[in-house]
Design a binder for these strands. Structure first.
Lengths: 343, 343
DNA sequence: AAGGTCAATGCAATCGATTGCAGGACTTTC
DNA sequence: GAAAGTCCTGCAATCGATTGCATTGACCTT
């Protein structure tokens, strides 16, 4: 029946003013031993919890960050989000999550950020174009923002990301080292103005090894399993298959491999496949996938730390943060030495 | 440089009072055509966005719900969460996410709910015991709460869940119909006082068919792939394997099947496996998994709708909501008729 | 023309926590 | 003993939006 107690109720209980209660809670050393004890008792007795809305209004800070993801259903993002939430919690922040904001990003962003709901933005969605980002950053005081997605954004923007180009090169290099010469690529869609770094890495590795890029072995998907399936169908329609394929992520690899198998093409016997990300199932897939493991937990934690540092003004101010992480080649069973003969 | 505009700024711009601006925004029909137009222009010019903290304080409502999950990294939960976020958005609510709250649930809950950060709780985590729930519900006015997890909770608590017992029975029944008699079970841990409904369903189906429950074919995991692996190792150490196994979820099925394969036991040739949930990879796994599909999107959407109805007081008040959804048997290739001979 | 109705709008209190400023009690120092 | 300093605490303004109540004036009715 009784409403939740306010700081005034606690003050009355302890026989002090609301100001003193507030100080006990946020700067205990500025209050006498005796008063502190009485206030602490009163807090306990009344079951007081701070009203965050009032605090946010007064402090102009919500102690909340917004994580914007293209799709939480995707295990890649959900792992990162897990790390984000953990880190945010340990620093006393809550996490609001927005997903699938393809429809009206600006409405979203203002809805959350310019309205004291969230103090900063962790952006995992590369589909928001650079203009939107700049509009945000350029709006009066810069908006606390850390980008954390595949394509390299504007270096002016704070970012934490893995070196996708290097990683892709190493993945392809691995196939080349195994003796493969006919290497295809299933790319995820390039969603914004930036080049797809994994695709660029593929091209560079091929070119560096003096291998030709065959247009018919290059298929575009969207990082979903279904487009991995579609990619396999596309290749199956050809006269000649590549002996190895670098897939833009593990999900496409899974769809790709399982579709080939239905057609009698076994991996790695007939075709080697390298994926990207090392999602949870990759270890247990049949065959276990060779893949470039992205340090997802580290990504989430580092990006969150950086964002909160920016929000709290404790970040170094000499230029934007541009942290680059390195992916790790995990060799399992979806790749094997090339044993056949070309032509 | 200039701070974000307030409702006062808009009022000055439009030559009206703040009250009128507020009314234009929330009850346009109560304001004259002319004033409305001027205010709308002023809103546009100033780039005004409402300060949610102030609104929450005044309204005693945050238009935010809290989703508490055991683990977002798990694709099962992340799909539900996606639906939750979509539905919440369409009703004008934001979603705060808490994950892994095993450590100190009460601190969490008060931190979020009793402090005007969130208006209600969507609980996906069965590890919070009934006592905690009741403490919450019984605290003065009942806390808007909808539970949404595997084990059937106290019927006093609003809930949206699938009929796990029925579904488990149908899964086992499917194996029996295929001719299997030696059927094992890999169960997820029972995390609270309630019985694990999938396990109960397994037992009932077996008993109903007059089949014996062999203790050595019953293994306990925790719904992770790793415990699926462990379960397979446990069974491999036995003299005699079951010819079919019902796994408590798809992730354990995946770990289970892949580990058996390494030991030369092929699914479904040597052993049939039924999973549960129908997560995204199940379709593309090798073999594609036969499984009980839970209507995850529907679960998330219905639970969210119910919660918001409760928050807004538009829910029917005649007793708690107890919605039960039905899982669907999806037959793929991990199950096959029993062809061998027993004994 | 007086009185009544009604729509439109403004005034001012309110939500609950924070904090600059000032005052009181007490100690230190010369 | 007085001035200066220290420590603790309370007063009251403030953050920005909402809303009950009062006021205004246009228009209608008799």
């Amino acid at each position: 029946m009784k409403k939740t107690p306010t700081i005034q109720d606690v003050a009355r209980h302890a026989g002090v003013s609301a100001a003193t209660v507030s100080r006990v809670l946020s700067a205990p050393e500025r209050v006498s031993e005796a008063a502190r004890a009485r206030v602490e008792d009163a807090v306990h007795e009344t079951g007081y919890t701070i009203n965050q809305a009032a605090r946010s209004l007064r402090m102009r800070a919500a102690r909340t960050i917004l994580a914007a993801l293209p799709n939480i259903g995707n295990p890649f993002y959900s792992t990162i989000l897990d790390a984000v939430i953990g880190k945010a919690l340990s620093r006393g922040y809550s996490v609001l999550v927005a997903s699938r904001l393809d429809e009206n990003p600006n409405r979203w962003l203002s809805n959350y950020l310019l309205s004291n709901r969230a103090d900063g933005l962790l952006l995992f969605d590369g589909s928001l174009d650079t203009r939107s980002l700049h509009d945000l950053v350029g709006d009066g005081t810069p908006l606390p923002l850390v980008a954390c997605y595949d394509e390299l954004p504007d270096p002016q923007i704070n970012s934490v990301l893995t070196d996708n180009r290097q990683a892709a090169m190493r993945a392809v290099r691995h196939l080349i080292d195994l003796g493969h010469r006919h290497i295809g690529h299933v790319t995820g869609a390039t969603r914004n103005a930036f080049p797809n770094e994994r695709l660029v890495g593929y091209r560079e590795a091929m070119t560096a090894a003096g291998l030709p890029l065959r247009a018919e072995w290059f298929v575009t998907g969207d990082y979903s399993m279904d487009t991995g399936v579609a990619a396999a169908r596309t290749l199956l329609a050809l006269d000649e298959l590549p002996t190895a394929v670098f897939c833009g992520n593990d999900e496409m690899s899974i769809g790709f491999i399982s579709t080939l198998r239905e057609a009698g093409i076994e991996c790695p016997r007939d075709i080697s496949v390298v994926g990207f990300d090392d999602i949870a199932v990759s270890r247990h897939f049949a065959p276990p996938l060779t893949t470039m493991r992205q340090p997802r937990e580290a990504m989430g934690a580092i990006a969150t730390d950086a964002l909160i540092d920016i929000i709290e003004g404790t970040a170094p101010t000499d230029g934007p943060i541009n942290k680059v992480l390195t992916a790790e080649l995990v060799i399992r069973s979806s790749t094997a030495p090339f044993t056949g003969r070309h032509r």
